[in-house]
Amino acid sequence: MSNDKEWKRKLLRDMVVIRTFEETADKLTLRGKVAGGMHNSSGQEAVAVGTMSALDPKDVIATTHRSHHHTLAKGMDPKLVMAELFAKATGCSKGRGASMHLADVDNGNFGGNGIVGAGVGIAMGAAMGIKQLGHKKVSVGFVGDGGMNTGRTWEAINMAVVNKLPFICLVDNNQYAVETFIDRVTGGRDIAKRGAGFGLPSFTIDGQDVLKVNRYVKEARDRALAGEGPTLINALTYRYYGHNVGEKGQYRTQEEIADWRDNRDPIDRFSAQLISEGLLSQDEYVALHAEVTAQINAAVEFAEQSPYPDLSTIYEDVDSGLLGAKS
């Protein structure tokens, strides 16, 4: 059916937007254009797009230091993301956040975060707010494998369980906490088992399969809206680049990286599937790439042309000023 065709083509397009954005931003970072560097999410597109495609646009997310893919998949215009990476006044956080602090609170993106695990807590809190106000929404807290070893993550999960919050803990598990392989630092090694111990449905899934991620998140969302509380989804994925741009560590082999890129790439897999199902032609796929490349180039142009924040604004918006107002 054509709705399904359009929907799947959109998923593919969203993933290509992320990949193209990241490859472009990575090069710009090496040229010194990106304030403070960035964390490249290439390879992890299906986790972001699979999740966001299962959510309502008004649902809430809060994310991590590696959040470009979540933010773009949530629907932010790449121009606002790129301008923010450049620390320009036109960026989504007015140039105050750059790569790690992308946010659009009004549209349910409660922000990236420089602190590992913090986004889980904020998303859980948003879920408490949703329940408190009787709204029919869910909140998703993204966290990496590294963040599953900080205590606050489990405090937040427990809080969500005991209050039956409409919350999903989405582990964007790229298997390396900076350069440390997860199995070396994770007691019991099985994150889903840990989740089960906290009393919430917990699943480990293939995070390179966009439709699988979509299905698990959709089911988790349905449970949350039915009042059944939170779910943990541990989506196994892989980042193709170093923790930071430009890093080439010795902590993993080139064979391992090549295996994930060549055999499990989420975009290659999904585009091949759509082509084989007759939902996309090779020519259309080439055209899609060209269209997305033009879109990302326009985002770069927008960022380049945008002004930096006026230095007179650095005092603004620290607090409301209302506490001291004399009534």
């Binding site: 809430v60 609170v105 807590g121 809190g125 809080m159």
Partner: peptide
């Protein structure tokens, strides 16, 4: 940590 995070997220939410 979860108590204060609850307050932050719920506060941001409304």
């Amino acid at each position: 940590a979860a108590m204060v995070a609850s307050g932050i997220g719920a506060g941001m939410y409304g």
